[in-house]
Amino acid sequence: MKAVPKVNTDGLYLEDTLMDDTFTGVVPFYSYMEQGIPNVLTTTEDVEKPNGEAPNEPESNISGYIIGITVPPGLFRPRFDLAAWNAYESTVSAAQNSYHEALSEWHALPEEQRGDMPVLESPPQPTLWIEGLTPEEIEELTRPQPQEPNEVDRLGTELVARELEALELRQQNEAQGAQIVGLELRLLSLENS
Results as ranks from 00 to 15, higher is better:
V160Q: 13
T17C: 14
T44P: 01
R143G: 00
E140V: 05
A161F: 11
L167A: 12
G74F: 05
G25V: 07
I37Y: 02
T70N: 12
V7S: 00
T9A: 03
E105C: 06
F76N: 02
K2H: 10
T127N: 11
P5A: 10
I62W: 12
E121C: 03
G132W: 10
G177E: 15
A84T: 10
P72G: 10
M19S: 15
P58L: 06
Y13P: 00
L190K: 11
T142N: 14
A83S: 15
F29A: 05
A178S: 08
V40A: 12
G52C: 08
R77H: 07
E121I: 07
V47M: 07
Y13T: 01
M117G: 04
L183D: 13
P144L: 07
A3V: 01
G132D: 03
S31L: 10
D16H: 11
K49G: 06
G68A: 06
K49A: 13
W85P: 00
P50S: 07
A166G: 00
E101T: 14
P28G: 08
Q172Y: 03
Y30I: 00
E174G: 01
L14D: 06
T70H: 04
Y65R: 10
E59H: 10
V181C: 03
L185Q: 15
T134A: 12
L185K: 15
T44S: 12
E15A: 12
D10P: 00
D81S: 01
R162W: 11
V160K: 14
E57H: 09
G132I: 05
N173V: 02
V47N: 09
L14I: 13
P58Y: 09
L159S: 08
E139T: 09
V160F: 03
A54E: 13
N51C: 07
G156N: 15
L128I: 06
S98K: 09
P28Q: 11
P118C: 04
G25D: 10
W129M: 02
K49H: 14
